[in-house]
Write a protein that binds this DNA or RNA. Structure first.
Lengths: 331, 331
DNA sequence: CCTTGTTGACGCAACGTTAATTCAAAATAG
DNA sequence: CTATTTTGAATTAACGTTGCGTCAACAAGG
């Protein structure tokens, strides 16, 4: 391994100068010619800084962790992009973790909890972590920021309540009266359900209970089946989770329910996949990219000991993307 | 920060003993009572080892990088699981990277190339990296292993050729004569196409040229449209990439082509999503979990300086999962 | 009795980097 | 021409850990 010591020797300067060249330190000065000589030697020898030594000395790793419920949920694509970009602007790399791999005692968690691994942690959907994992995180010395609500940590949300409201209001404006809210579980889903409820209440309609069947494709299918068993079948549904929308479409197909003719569907969260389904799914797009960026900024506030802004992201607002899965009620 | 020094002081022992307790070193011995006292002090003070210092001293980070073309492609779910599990067995954590973030000069790549970040790198689909990035990787001092073929590095593949053959043979056995191969680009796709070609040749059928429209939903839609423009329209298609299958279904719907009645579809690679589409997609399941595990084992061979096995994973073989998107040719 | 072996522990030198401190030489001011 | 400031750089002490070398105390063997 070629170290600064080797470079220093080759360039005929001291270690301090090499370090200064690497870091652009202003304190230790040097002639331009010396700088060039050092750079030349670095090039020649193929010097690569040793992150470990650097981290030890500076007591920061320039790495942050981001924990997602399920890293391959396409909803997180823009979120990841926002986090990566903002992290890069802070000179940091992102260690991606899956809530699945965050079992208590797991290698990943142990590593995260030990010192000198990351400068801070970003968690999306704290609600899906085990209680004991949460307890371990609570005692973690490094800053933790939760995307989409937390009881014990600073947090930033997108406007889930508003998303539920937008989806529901759209269906109401299309003339629907029997609308159900399907899928999800936990705090975020409750918020969206609350938005649904507010929209229903505001229009004098009776909100149906939350069919909190969970996440994923199967959850959507289950939710639809439950919904259709009601005394008066709904003519429209708001699907909490976007992957559940796939399940809703499948179940509707299997039950012989035509979408959108007999049932209108609006999803919350938008991903590319939605425009490639048939019918293409009308959905509420959430500002996930901005959430990612804001999360990193807030985390770095925490890391720097500054007070962090936090709160709900209202700019941009959730936005309805109209496709083919919802249509005017033709009762 | 509480260090081994603090623990040593609290337990009334030397640094060496604390280190030995932490690492279970046999060289430095101690009475069971001493060990207990140290453990007690660690507990009391909430000692967490400093990974950075540890890595510097031991010259290994117990972290490996895994680069995927697109981390949220569900195809990689089992691959990631295999990699995480095997890595954990080696006491390592996984730094997940996206080929998108591997642009030359990116923070992620810089970090990866500098020393003391990872002990080795696992790359899936090297073919999708920029040439300059590949050049930078080539000069990397740490072991690199490529999943699914490489020219310059050790590699492990799943049997892509066989997958293409299995999919095609299945359609041939259903009585189809005009079968096309759609989607993808690069080495892997060529292998699968080769399998398709071999199956066609073996049955005395004329293979159609590879419609290498790339990856993703849109690529599938484009591929199908191209395929249907042929003088004699195909009655069956093999879709190279699983996400492209979604696009094929959408395009078929838009063109009024009934699947499977007028067109049979078989996808290569299988993911949960396929069973939730309508029609549910018949697909060839690849041993991605095993690929992940084998990749990590081979990488650790390299890290340890042992000769690495490498080659094509033939156990288990690619396996056909029959659903509803392919049926007997009713010409 | 001395010799040899074992137990239980300590001391210390790295690992590669950074940044504060120091200092000689050159440039500028008075 | 001396005093002061600036420039250009070297020395050095950490950062927290690990593992080799050492060693005193005690036990067992001859």
């Amino acid at each position: 391994m070629v170290t600064q010591r080797d470079v220093a020797r080759a360039a005929g300067v001291s270690l301090a100068v090499v370090s200064a060249v690497v870091n652009g330190t202003s304190h230790t000065r040097m002639k331009e010619s010396t700088r060039a000589r050092v750079l030349e030697a670095m090039q020649q020898l193929g010097y690569q800084p040793n992150q470990t030594a650097r981290s030890l000395r500076r007591n920061r790793t320039d790495m942050i962790a981001m924990i997602l419920n399920k890293v391959d949920n396409p909803v997180y694509g823009p979120l990841r992009r926002g986090v990566y970009e903002a992290a890069a602007e802070h000179g940091a790399t992102v260690l991606l973790g899956d809530a699945d791999t965050m079992r208590s005692g797991s290698r990943f968690l142990t590593r995260l909890l030990s010192q000198g691994t990351v400068d801070g942690i970003l968690i999306r959907g704290e609600g899906l972590l085990d209680d004991d994992v949460k307890a371990e995180l609570r005692s973690h010395p490094k800053p933790i920021l939760v995307l989409e609500h937390a009881l014990d940590h600073p947090w930033i949300d997108v406007d889930d309540l508003r998303a539920g409201e937008i989806a529901t209001r759209f269906l109401i404006n299309l003339g629907h009266r029997h609308i159900v809210f399907v899928g999800g579980t936990g705090y975020l889903s409750q918020q969206r359900y609350l938005g649904y409820k507010q929209a229903m209440d505001a229009s004098g309609l009776a909100p149906a209970p939350h069919l909190d069947t969970g996440f994923g494709e199967q959850a959507g299918a289950d939710g639809l089946r439950q919904a259709m068993q009601a005394a008066t079948a709904p003519t429209a549904i708001v699907v909490n989770n976007i992957m559940s929308a796939v399940g809703v479409l499948a179940a509707a197909h299997d039950l012989g329910i035509a979408i959108p003719d007999r049932l209108s569907v609006v999803g919350i969260h938008d991903v590319d996949l939605m425009q490639h389904l048939r019918p293409a799914v009308t959905a509420v797009r959430m500002p996930m990219y901005q959430l990612g960026r804001a999360g990193v900024e807030a985390l770095y506030d925490l890391i720097a000991g500054r007070p962090s802004a936090g709160g709900v992201i209202t700019d941009p607002e959730p936005e309805l993307v109209i496709r083919d899965s919802a249509t005017r009620f033709a009762g």
